[in-house]
Design a protein around this nucleic acid. Structure first.
Lengths: 155, 155
DNA sequence: CTTTCTGCAAACTCTTTGCAGTCGC
DNA sequence: GCGACTGCAAAGAGTTTGCAGAAAG
């Protein structure tokens, strides 16, 4: 994301804050800018680090606000750690997580949505939501196969 | 799960511990028994509570061991909280979480596995794993629709 | 008898809360 | 000017670690 794109993304997030009745303050602006600088996911800690002008508590409070307004989403890593990522799209989506370069991409699929609803229904559930993370290697990272090993499917 | 089934499940878990080189100790037995008494998921805290004979640290250490041996699996709740559940099946599976009664069922589906691998591949990922939780109402819980409201699909 | 495991207590990390002052709108 | 927001500091969960003794195999 280049400087101009980040600027636009920041304004989109700020407008949404304002529209939902939250105030666009200096610390929030700072954090939004910092969030957007991450190419992929980040921890609450890494947002806080090197930002002496923003209190720790404010970071956590802002994280909640951003989550509520859909500016951020949680990503569950393979080891169960929960981290954050700027939501390209405020709507429902899933994550593709590269286990090598830590890139996270959003994606959505009507087909998958339907398949999940159907899977739930088959077990007697009326599905109201779900959470899906797919782990693998993105096409910029050499696979085990191409480096001599063998890629194993865990799923 | 009745007493006999729990006893069998406990033995299965203990055998697996032994086979993998872990010791079957008194505290671990206690915890296994307690885990099996939960009809659904539980937190690290609820495992610890009311078990004065087992130290807090031992609970956490055992949790890691059980996770490593496949006796337990993590379940991510809708709000991002991570809890544990006895794995009926040591193999890969997904979770159906009832948002009313907190029941968690395991399920697996070759079809879904293939669909997820395919979805990843479509985005250039070589899929090595995934994590899926489906939230909804199980067939023992009245739906909003049947109690006058309307069930909304979030996914 | 060796090695792993345990309880305890202390240390640590991560997150939340209370409060008086500040700042957006 | 009002009310939401902020930084600070302290409190509060939740989890990990060091260690000497206990127990499994």
């Amino acid at each position: 994301m280049d400087t101009i794109a980040r600027e636009q993304a920041a304004q989109r997030i700020e407008r949404r804050l304002a529209r939902l009745g939250y105030r666009v303050t200096q610390p929030r602006r700072r954090l939004i800018e910092k969030m957007l600088a991450f190419e992929t996911y980040f921890s609450s800690d890494s947002l806080s680090v090197g930002e002496p002008s923003v209190g720790r508590a404010t970071v956590f409070r802002s994280l909640h606000v951003f989550l509520r307004t859909g500016a951020l989403c949680q990503v569950v890593l393979e080891d169960g750690t929960i981290v954050y990522r700027v939501a390209d799209d405020g709507a429902h989506h899933h994550h593709l997580v590269c286990i090598d370069c830590d890139l996270v991409e959003e994606f959505s699929s009507e087909f998958l949505e339907a398949a999940l609803a159907h899977a739930g229904a088959a077990h007697g559930y009326q599905v109201t939501g779900h959470r899906l993370e797919i782990y693998g290697r993105c096409d910029h990272c050499p696979t085990e196969a191409s480096s001599g090993g063998r890629a194993g499917a865990r799923g």
